[in-house]
C-alpha cells in the first residue's frame, strides 16, 4: 500500500486541481452557488480517484480492479442527466430562457470535464509510477494546461464580426439597420426604445458561421448571455421590450436588439463576442463537397 500511496495521491491531487480550475474557468460562473460547486468538486474527487487508482491496479497486477474501474466510469453519464434536469427545471421560471441547445451543451461539457479529470489523474499517476513521484510535478501541470486549452471551444467572436447597429423605426416596425425586429404599437414604447435600445449586427464570416447563427438555439444562447450580464427591462406580463435576434433573410446576418439595464454598447459587443459556439448548432456545410461548391 505504501508503495502506491504517493502515486495515488499525486493522481488525485492533479485531478482535483484540474476539476477546480475547470469550474473556475467558466466566465459566467456557472454553477454560481457553493453547493453546486461542492457537488462538482465531490464528483471531481471521485473521478480523480478512479484515474489515480487505475495505474497501481494494473501494476499490481489486479485486472479485476481495472474492470471495476471501467464500470465505475459509466457513472459519470449520470452527470449529464443531472445537469440537464436541473437546468430544464430552472428554465420554467426564467424570464429569458437559456434554450434547450445551450442546456444540452452545458450538460455535455460537465460530463466531459469528469473524463478529462480521469485522464489527468491517470497520466499523472502513470508518470509517478513509471518515473518517480517527482515527474508527477511536471506531467500534472502539463496535462492540466492541456485540458484547459483543448476544451476552451470557439466563440461567436471567432466566427462572426460584431458591430454596432442603428436602432430606428419604419412606421411601426422596429429595425436594426435593415433588419426587421418586430412591430411596436405604442408611441411611448417606441420613444423608450429609441432612447434606450441597443442594437448590434452579427455578421458571419463564412457559410458555416451563417448556418450556426441561423439556429434559434444559438441566438437564444447569445441573448441569454447578454441578459445575464447587462440585464433587461422585461418583466412578467410586460414583454414589449423583449430582447430579440432576427435574421436579414437575404444576406444571412443577425441583428440583436435589447433594452438593457446597463446600456453599455462596447461591453455588449464584447459579451456577444465571448458567447460560446454551441456544439449542437455548429454549421458544417463547408466540410461537405456540395456545400463548398454551393458557397463559391
Amino acid at each position: 500500500m505504501e508503495k502506491y500511496g504517493a502515486v495515488i495521491a499525486a493522481g488525485i491531487a492533479a485531478g482535483l486541481i484540474n476539476r477546480w480550475l475547470l469550474l473556475r474557468s467558466d466566465y459566467r460562473h456557472y454553477p454560481t452557488y457553493p453547493h453546486g460547486q461542492l457537488v462538482h468538486l465531490a464528483l471531481g474527487f471521485i473521478a480523480a480517484s478512479l484515474g489515480a487508482v487505475a495505474v497501481p491496479a494494473i501494476a499490481k497486477p489486479d485486472f479485476v480492479a481495472v474492470t471495476f474501474l471501467v464500470l465505475a466510469a459509466q457513472q459519470f453519464r449520470e452527470v449529464r442527466n443531472m445537469e440537464r434536469e436541473t437546468l430544464m427545471k430552472l428554465e420554467e421560471s426564467k424570464l429569458i430562457s437559456r434554450g434547450t441547445d445551450y442546456i444540452e451543451g452545458i450538460a455535455r461539457v460537465f460530463e466531459a470535464r469528469n473524463y478529462l479529470v480521469i485522464m489527468t489523474a491517470l497520466l499523472t499517476s502513470g508518470a509517478a509510477q513509471l518515473w518517480g513521484v517527482k515527474s508527477a510535478f511536471i506531467i500534472g501541470p502539463v496535462s492540466i494546461m492541456l485540458t484547459l486549452r483543448l476544451m476552451s471551444g470557439s466563440f461567436i467572436g471567432d466566427i462572426a464580426e460584431v458591430k454596432q447597429g442603428q436602432v430606428h423605426f419604419e412606421g411601426s416596425l422596429l429595425m436594426v439597420d435593415d433588419v426587421v425586429i418586430m412591430n411596436v404599437g405604442l408611441p411611448q414604447t417606441r420613444k423608450k426604445i429609441i432612447e434606450e435600445g441597443l442594437g448590434v449586427i452579427i455578421k458571419p464570416v463564412d457559410d458555416n458561421a451563417r448556418l450556426n447563427l441561423d439556429a434559434p438555439g444559438q441566438r437564444k444562447a447569445i441573448i441569454h448571455d447578454v441578459v445575464s450580464i447587462l440585464g433587461s427591462k422585461v418583466d412578467i406580463n410586460e414583454t414589449e421590450l423583449m430582447p430579440m435576434a432576427r435574421k436579414q433573410v437575404d444576406k444571412g446576418y443577425l441583428a440583436l436588439f435589447i433594452v438593457a439595464n446597463e446600456p453599455d454598447l462596447e461591453m455588449l459587443i464584447e459579451i456577444v463576442k465571448r458567447v460560446p459556439v454551441l456544439e449542437s448548432t455548429r454549421g458544417t456545410t463547408l466540410q461537405s463537397y456540395y456545400g463548398r461548391k454551393a458557397a463559391d
Binding site: 412606421g171 411601426s172 412591430n183 411596436v184 404599437g185 405604442l186 414604447t189 412578467i236 406580463n237 410586460e238 414583454t239 414589449e240
Partner: peptide
C-alpha cells in the same frame, strides 16, 4: 392581459 400592442398603421 400580458400582451403586446401592435399597430396596423
Amino acid at each position: 392581459l400580458g400582451g403586446i400592442v401592435h399597430d396596423l398603421e
